[in-house]
Simulated assay, not measured.
Amino acid sequence: MAAGTFENGELDQACRQVGRFMYHFAAVEKSLDRIIQKAWELDDTQILLLASSLNIHQKKKIAQSAIDEQDTSERWRESARSELKKLQKLSDERNMFAHSLFHMVGKDSIEFDYFSAKGDREAGKRVVRRLEEMENKFRIMNDLVLALNRIRRSMRSLLASREYVYTFEHHTGYPHEWLSEISEESGKHAGSVVKFVPGDTEDDITSVTVAFPSAQLLGEYVRQYWKGVCDDDFIDEQLDAIKTRSKDDI
């Protein structure tokens, strides 16, 4: 059917649904841009300039790199990667919506003058999307926006200075002076005391939190002080308790 021959509101109906798809896809892409913005500490103007020169696949690769560099669990990174994978199919759909003429088929479907080049069930056929199917895609894209925003909130800037932090707590097998020694030794190994919790009396120390620029160095330090007092399982648990933080954090 030629463009401009729609009657009885069919053009408005089709354009409204295609416009809604493009709106939701733009929201997904904006959320992806914001991941890149946070990872590289770009201001609003900088991310707009950068985003306008990148296609969705390039943005995905950049966001993927930022996710891979996060000091998080592998489970978190894998979950984030799985959300990014959803972009491929949506991007293919977006290209069809953006570059194809379309018209209503009956009252509940839109046909696109588009042929799938892939070896799937739509190959060599004009693509038809039912309105109900499109509503589901809107929900999928809305959920993806929420997921990408959660990823962004959980991320840290790749440009931020990093430290590795561990809290030594008073052990009944050690005198309180042992924690004082930790404070002194920390400075000798390029570490720093970031939190000091006193005990009930002037000479008591409840805990000392130290920060090191190297996870490996701090791990050796933790192992050294627990060795001979606790078993290997306990020491492994303590190594897992090493946290990361930005130097700007308190």
Rank of each mutant, 00 (worst) to 15 (best):
M104R: 06
E202T: 11
D12Q: 09
S180H: 15
R162Y: 14
R34H: 12
S31F: 12
D231G: 09
L144S: 07
E163T: 05
I140M: 02
S31M: 13
C15K: 14
F138V: 02
R153E: 14
A26V: 08
A2H: 04
Q37N: 03
E78H: 05
S91Q: 01
E184I: 15
L158C: 04
V18M: 11
R121A: 00
L179Y: 10
D203W: 04
W178T: 11
R223F: 11
I62T: 13
A241C: 07
K107F: 15
R139D: 10
S154V: 09
Y225I: 07
R77Y: 01
N149G: 08
A39F: 14
Y23F: 11
F196W: 14
S79P: 01
S65V: 08
E132Q: 06
R75D: 06
H189L: 09
F21A: 01
E29T: 07
Q216Y: 07
G228A: 12
F138C: 00
H171V: 07
V105M: 10
V145F: 03
P213C: 14
H176R: 15
F138T: 02
E83Y: 08
R152L: 08
D232F: 04
R153W: 06
S79C: 06
E74R: 10
K118I: 00
K125S: 02
M104N: 02
H171G: 06
I62V: 14
L146F: 10
H170I: 14
A14Y: 01
S116L: 00
Y166D: 08
S79D: 13
V18D: 02
F112N: 01
D12H: 09
E83K: 13
L159C: 13
I62S: 06
E135C: 03
F21S: 01
N95S: 05
V145I: 05
R94E: 02
I182E: 04
V197A: 04
E7L: 14
K137W: 12
L84R: 03
L144W: 10
L218G: 03
I235D: 02
R34P: 00
M96I: 01
E181D: 14
F112Y: 13
G19W: 15
R153H: 04
K118R: 15
I67L: 06
L87C: 04
R150D: 07
A190K: 11
H171N: 06
V229F: 03
A66P: 08
H103S: 11
R152A: 14
E135T: 15
K60G: 07
Y221I: 03
V194I: 09
L48N: 10
I56Q: 04
N95K: 01
A63S: 08
D233I: 04
I35K: 10
N8K: 07
R223Y: 08
E93M: 00
R75H: 09
S91M: 00
T72I: 06
G199C: 15
H176Y: 13
T45C: 13
S100A: 15
L144Y: 07
I56E: 12
A190H: 09
L90I: 04
S157D: 12
A241W: 01
F196D: 03
V28K: 13
D12E: 13
S53T: 12
G191K: 02
E7H: 12
V145C: 06
L87R: 00
A160W: 01
S161L: 11
V208Y: 07
L90T: 00
G19Y: 12
D233P: 01
F112R: 00
S154K: 10
K89F: 00
G173W: 11
H57F: 13
R77H: 02
